[in-house]
Simulated assay, not measured.
Amino acid sequence: MTRKNGSARRAVLAGAAAALLLPGAVRAQAWPSRTITLVVPFAPGGGTDTFARPFAAKLSQELGQQVVIDNRAGAGGTVGAAIVAKAKPDGYTFLLGSVHHAVAVTAYKQLQYDLQKDLVPVTSVASVPDVLVIYPGIPAKTLQEFIAYCKANPGKTNFGSVGLGTTRHLAGEIFNAKTGTTMTHVPYKGSGPATAALISGEVTAVFEGLGSAAPYIRSGKARALAVFSAERSPAFPDIPTAAEAGLAGFESLSWYGLWAPAGTDAAIVSAMQAAVEKAFAAADLKKVWLEQGAAPGGAPTVRFAAFVTEEIGKWGKVVRDGNITIE
């Protein structure tokens, strides 16, 4: 075989190898060619919405196609997750899920989807500490004063959450167990309705993500008593940590992430992760997250997937230890 013929043969083989990869590559290059739907599995105006809307706007700029929000509330976020799990895996439907979905894996007796089989982790979106906020009409200015108030009013205090089996629900149950209080749980269909109930005095307290609670804390419509993180939030340096307020060993963080239906082309998942990472490199989106006391997202897909698996295990233990089961 001549050198010329050998070179030609290698070129043909290289072309054939490239052709094997071509379908996925072509789909990734053509994507996105139309509007992308971002399913937010909670009611409008809640914690996820706080991040979803500026995130979707920035992502639209990065992708060159509109990213629209579709709020599908219900059952602690599992209704919306089921919708995405059953959606066509063409790269045009994504779930903006949260830590609540990691909890639901163990907490719910039956789910209409399998988080680890029917959905594919894409990347992180935000991480923010939870905060205990109370109705400002309650005569308690500190966490210890609030605990004393609850004990002095057994059966008359309650706490709202974004739904049964969510981390906010579990945070309230853990709080009751650690402090000896007996607040009654009142589930809602998202942070928005739960916060509205707090502001109106319908519920005494709410365990909420700092991001969604931020405007109500700043306006004085809700009183923040403690953040459940190891350190104070730079966005709210005056709010003590739970440990500083006298309740050690209690941390609760809310995080949000992006999932795609199982079967979505790996090249599209990779392209979406890259777009999200680029979006968070922009100063304007970073500023919005900082104002909410949140850490930005954009983590590599492999790292986010490992994190989700770890969270499923961590919250699964909390659910089993608390003997919590939701039909």
Rank of each mutant, 00 (worst) to 15 (best):
residue 244 E to Q: 15
residue 302 V to R: 15
residue 287 K to C: 04
residue 257 G to S: 11
residue 294 A to R: 00
residue 303 R to T: 14
residue 220 G to T: 01
residue 228 F to Y: 13
residue 228 F to H: 09
residue 218 R to T: 04
residue 258 L to T: 00
residue 288 V to I: 13
residue 234 P to L: 08
residue 243 A to E: 15
residue 236 F to K: 00
residue 304 F to S: 03
residue 270 S to G: 09
residue 288 V to A: 11
residue 264 T to E: 14
residue 242 A to V: 01
residue 249 G to R: 03
residue 231 E to Y: 10
residue 306 A to P: 06
residue 265 D to L: 11
residue 240 P to L: 10
residue 254 S to Q: 07
residue 243 A to V: 12
residue 273 Q to E: 11
residue 243 A to T: 08
residue 279 A to E: 11
residue 253 L to R: 13
residue 296 P to Q: 00
residue 228 F to R: 09
residue 274 A to G: 11
residue 255 W to L: 10
residue 238 D to N: 12
residue 286 K to P: 03
residue 246 G to T: 03
residue 288 V to N: 02
residue 295 A to T: 15
residue 284 D to L: 04
residue 236 F to I: 00
residue 244 E to A: 05
residue 249 G to K: 04
residue 307 F to V: 02
residue 256 Y to W: 03
residue 297 G to Q: 01
residue 293 G to Y: 03
residue 254 S to F: 14
residue 307 F to A: 05
residue 217 I to M: 05
residue 252 S to P: 11
residue 268 I to G: 08
residue 215 P to F: 02
residue 303 R to N: 15
residue 306 A to D: 12
residue 250 F to Y: 06
residue 280 F to M: 12
residue 236 F to M: 01
residue 222 A to N: 09
residue 230 A to N: 12
residue 228 F to E: 04
residue 272 M to E: 04
residue 232 R to L: 08
residue 262 A to F: 13
residue 214 A to T: 15
residue 235 A to N: 04
residue 256 Y to I: 13
residue 285 L to Q: 01
residue 228 F to K: 05
residue 295 A to C: 06
residue 254 S to L: 08
residue 258 L to P: 06
residue 291 E to N: 06
residue 243 A to I: 08
residue 223 R to Q: 14
residue 275 A to V: 00
residue 304 F to N: 13
residue 287 K to Y: 02
residue 244 E to W: 06
residue 228 F to S: 12
residue 280 F to K: 10
residue 294 A to I: 09
residue 263 G to N: 11
residue 234 P to I: 03
residue 215 P to E: 04
residue 290 L to W: 08
residue 286 K to S: 06
residue 233 S to F: 00
residue 233 S to H: 02
residue 222 A to R: 13
residue 287 K to D: 14
residue 264 T to G: 12
residue 297 G to W: 03
residue 218 R to G: 00
residue 258 L to Y: 02
residue 227 V to C: 14
residue 284 D to N: 01
residue 229 S to F: 07
residue 247 L to G: 07
residue 303 R to K: 14
residue 232 R to C: 09
residue 251 E to L: 14
residue 229 S to K: 05
residue 259 W to A: 08
residue 238 D to E: 15
residue 305 A to H: 07
residue 223 R to H: 15
residue 223 R to T: 15
residue 286 K to C: 02
